[in-house]
Amino acid sequence: MTVVPAQQSGGGGGSSGLYDVLELVLDRGLVIDAFIRVSLVGIEILKIDVRVVVASVDTYLRFAEACNRLDLESGSNKSPGLPEIVGEVTESGARGKSKGALSGAAETISDAFKQSREEGREKETESRPRARKSTASRRKEEQE
């Protein structure tokens, strides 16, 4: 998960979250009719579009594709029994193929399903809920 540190006031902050702040500078704040506003024509920082219609064919196809990839990553030719699929997804996520956020979520799924599937793989039984931050390092130790 991306953690953007909160900006300190006074110093002007770093570039992290700059765009998020500039959105406020440009779009909120007091407007007084008696004052003129500088033209914002040609501004490239502001990319706030109204939420476009998400329900397009392209979007559907992209998500269908994403789902297929998701399943393929679990690399299964086995029986499509439900817990198995989830277990495999979990495993592939936990293996660290993808970003931290993904393995974090995969562990969440793992946690959720653990109660109904106690005989899971060793890796998963080792990982405990609510201790996600240190899981990666712990896993490394366990493998040694």
Binding site: C67, G93, L102, A105, A112
Partner: peptide
């Protein structure tokens, strides 16, 4: 996080999982 949220909705929705699995088995 797109992948994480896909994992999540798939894990919570059996109908979705079944459909995805059917598609996958028929080559997409």
């Amino acid at each position: 996080d797109e992948e994480a949220v896909l994992h999540r909705v798939m894990s919570e929705n059996p109908e979705l999982r079944a459909l995805a699995e059917a598609n996958r088995q028929s080559g997409g």
